[in-house]
Amino acid sequence: MNFNNPVLFKELKLRFRSFKGFNGILFFLLAMCIFVFGYIFLTVNISGTSYFRPSQSFVLFAFLSYIQLGLVLFTAPGLTAGSISSEREKQTLPILLTTSQSSFQIISGKMLSSVAFLLLLIVAGLPVYSLVFLFGGISPWSFVKVFFFLFVTLLAIGSIGVMFSTLIRRTIVSMIVTYGTMLFLSVVTGFLFIIVIQMKAFNQMGTVITTPSYLGQFLASINPAVLFATFLSPDMGYGISELTKVDFPIWAGYLIFYGLLTVGALFIAVKRLRVNMKRLK
């Protein structure tokens, strides 16, 4: 990445010049605090004990992880799907495209500025998040895994947003398509996974299922909710392998798919940002 990126610096400057950026962080942290302290307060009071059990700490960790995942899934499209199309709508894009900046610099600047803001939200929430460590029950490794894959998801959804923003002229259409893609990846794939497994079980009713379901494994591997479930409950990962008869870690499939998706989306965005002058049209 080129860190001497004018678009990145300009975007970051503009984002924090308005109160919108600060308000976003403030309300996110307030919501996190209310949730965490509310949960601890209620658990301690309802159970009538004056302590917080490690198993309860784990539930809190699971909830917080899904909240962070939801934050990434629902905020990343909003932050990135207008990155190029809004420049086009504001009529600032032609000027930007006649500068010496490479298409990669412009796209990476737009992408990183949005990712950086979301990353800031996540990092700002870390002190609240880390409260779960106070009561035990969570390994730091689980914590690192969750954060790493949150980052992978963030990059992928962000790249998809930037790609659609480059390909589609209007921001509103780009937003709809990006949110649609995100919902497909996070919700529809889950349903499809259940359908595929059920159909397989139905077809082989009465017999022991031995043939592998690669499609089922693939659908499970690209669903962020399933991935997080396997982190929070390793038994879930074994269960899915039992169902699909494919012995390939969900996290590896997820990493490969979203890695390729990120690279592919950014490649298309970079290629399509400017017209290809060599090709006559």
Partner: peptide, 19 residues
């Protein structure tokens, strides 16, 4: 052509200079 909101004239030129 459009201009960026909340960018000062000097910063506007600086951004394009850097570009």
């Amino acid at each position: 052509f459009g201009v960026y909101d909340q960018l000062k004239a000097e910063e506007y030129l600086d951004f394009y200079g850097a570009s």
